[in-house]
Design a protein around this nucleic acid. Structure first.
Length: 225
DNA sequence: GCGACAG
DNA sequence: ATCTTGTCGC
């Protein structure tokens, strides 16, 4: 898979303009032909002190979830964390990590929002559009929109709304745990995104691939491995 | 001005 | 995101 260049020296204003321009490319209906046979889980970890980011990409077979490939890179941060502009901070290292993955990728699972974003262009949508690959956004907390209460049982959900528009789902993946926030990244419908995420949940709140990515990137970053 | 605010 | 042990609750 060819990885595009990413302009890392832009202003906050330009970043928002890029989102407004690229949001037009997002496709929010299922738009892939071949069955999904693998999935790339991606996450970024930090160190308490310092300005380095550690990005990891784990390729799993789907739906068996056997780890097929793994790539990790460290990179200096070039953009601050600003709500709504997370992609400009984390995409550079994530794209770098993807260069270490040899196989063709069927779908991307990204830590963060898809279209559940003020400009409908969270990091998962951004990555999906740049690579023209189906992607799903999966976040641990809400950035944009409102939702009603979610029933107690696993699999229950409530739509995330911005006015009248549905921009994602608050999905209960485990009883007694707060819901997670799933939204279309690119080329997948909300239904499909929710179904895939739920199929990846085993024992914990987070889907297994993202949970592993969290743990592994943290270990790599702290030099524990 | 006030409140909200992915990682 | 990150700093951190025990502890309350199902």
């Amino acid at each position: 898979m060819r990885i595009p260049e990413f302009n890392e020296s832009i202003s906050v204003k330009e970043a928002r303009e890029i989102q407004e321009k690229l949001r037009k490319e997002v496709i929010t209906v299922d738009s892939y032909s071949k069955p999904i046979k693998n999935l790339l889980a991606m996450d970024v970890s930090y160190l308490k002190a310092g300005d380095e980011l550690g990005a990891i990409a784990l390729l799993y077979s789907y739906p068996e979830l056997n780890l097929l490939e793994e790539s990790f890179v460290r990179k200096k941060s070039t953009f601050p964390y600003i709500p709504g502009l997370l992609a400009f901070r984390e995409l550079p290292p994530l794209l770098e990590a993807m260069k270490g993955i040899k196989s063709e990728i069927d779908i991307l699972l990204v830590e963060g929002q898809g279209i559940a974003h003020p400009r409908r262009f969270g990091i998962a949508s951004h990555l999906g559009v740049l690579l023209d690959t189906p992607s799903i956004g999966c976040a641990k907390s809400l950035l944009w929109g409102k939702h009603s209460g979610v029933e107690k049982g696993k699999g229950s959900y409530a739509y995330i709304l911005d006015q009248e528009e549905i921009i994602g789902v608050a999905l209960r993946t485990r009883e007694g745990a707060r819901p997670i926030y799933v939204s279309q990244g690119h080329k997948v419908s909300l239904d499909t995104a929710g179904e895939i995420v739920l199929s990846l949940v085993k024992t914990y709140r987070l889907p297994e691939p993202l949970r592993s990515a969290h743990i592994k990137s943290k270990l790599m970053m702290t030099g524990m491995v």
